[in-house]
Design a protein around this nucleic acid. Structure first.
Lengths: 212, 212
DNA sequence: CCGAGTACCTACTCTGGAGTAAGGCTACGG
DNA sequence: CCGTAGCCTTACTCCAGAGTAGGTACTCGG
């Protein structure tokens, strides 16, 4: 069946959408260009004409979705706020994004670690941006209040751990969707801000009164 | 070149070693059986004769390495100790393992999330065992001291977050090897036990006097 | 010394799937 | 109404790499 004639811009979006869907299902290698073209409702050579090789296509997917996600998170943070509130809003935005765009998340995370392809660059870069962002929020705490030596020395490491915790929790959430995004965000916020030692004593962190 | 005649048991170990090496470098899909056979110093049909298909081989690798790792972690924990000490020793053992067997870690983690193959079962199971183990340690805190409601309700989620933080920090460590395994473990221990809120105030967690 | 079993090899087959050559259809400017 | 630019397709080529057929050497019990 011959597809209706459409401007390039529109087709490119359709192709990317289809690619994200297919990649998210079974990973980069298991996805075939034929299947992507079928889902996109277009023939294979169009993909090559517009987006280049399979690797290029994957890189383009990663780039688009990563940008979307980081924009969502950054957009959720208000600069004037105290650091715990910033972190809280960042987490809420992150889990909100994951909940709303599961496919995007899957393609970003579940396929991300399979280093090997040249698209690794794209992924490393996005991950690094995430870590840097978190580190910045955490360390700003420091400049405001004179952060403890232990915290400031290992800022990047702490940020990496936090990012990993978020990723892992997001995955766990996909398999246990009974909770809301807010509840998940609160769980992580508590772990990371209060620490388990405090949680045991029943001390928990709560968002400030003004409803978020 | 004809290889020297060796008993099956020995060859199987050599093959598994080679497979772990190759899989850890570029992931499951990029690894070829030809390359594995070459690294193992043996010809391809031997692999098929002894370990079965490529998927079987990968599953066998995962199984062996996961068992090793969990044994290392479990072996590092002493049951009588208070929970924070147990967690501390577990973390030390974990990062010790990662530092010593980088290839094992890579094959376990970096390839693990690419869902799709039937070996996913093996991976899910090992991850679940890790999460359960952590959850058990954390929750035991509860039964000892009457854990806060917030902590007990989301025990599995907290464990998932902690496991993810550990994994992510381990990856980060591979790229920043300047610190010792103990230092990395201490970083995570502090984040997770004290929480960032306390770290900012300079309160940190320390292992009990008796040198670990 | 001789089977027979087990380690081991060379040299294939065969398929999935990336990427392409070559050309048809449609809209729009002139 | 015609040409040309750009959307779109069918129908290939081609190769990496999983898996195998079939045969060779070594070794050990008898």
């Amino acid at each position: 069946m011959r597809a209706k004639r459409l401007p390039r811009e529109v087709r490119e979006r359709q192709i990317l959408d289809a690619a994200v869907t297919v990649f998210s299902q079974n990973g980069y290698h298991s996805a075939s260009m034929d299947e992507i073209s079928e889902v996109a409702g277009i023939s294979k050579p169009m993909i090559y004409a517009y987006l280049g090789s399979k690797e290029d296509l994957f890189a383009a997917c990663i780039h688009r979705e990563a940008t979307r996600m980081l924009e969502a998170v950054v957009g959720g943070i208000e600069v004037g706020q105290p650091p715990d509130v910033q972190l809280w809003h960042g987490l809420r935005s992150f889990f909100g994004f994951v909940g709303e765009y599961r496919e995007s998340w899957r393609v970003l995370h579940r396929q991300s670690l399979t280093q090997g392809g040249p698209f690794t660059a794209e992924l490393m870069s996005m991950r690094q941006r995430a870590i840097s962002l978190v580190a910045a929020v955490l360390m700003q705490t420091g400049s405001d209040e004179g952060v403890g030596a232990a915290a400031s020395e290992s800022g990047e490491a702490l940020a990496a751990a936090l990012v990993g915790a978020g990723e892992s929790l997001a995955d766990w959430w996909l398999d246990h969707p009974e909770q809301s995004a807010g509840a998940i965000a609160a769980t992580l916020m508590n772990l990371v801000w209060m620490g388990f030692g405090n949680l045991v004593d029943g001390r928990i962190w709560r968002p400030p009164a003004k409803p978020a």
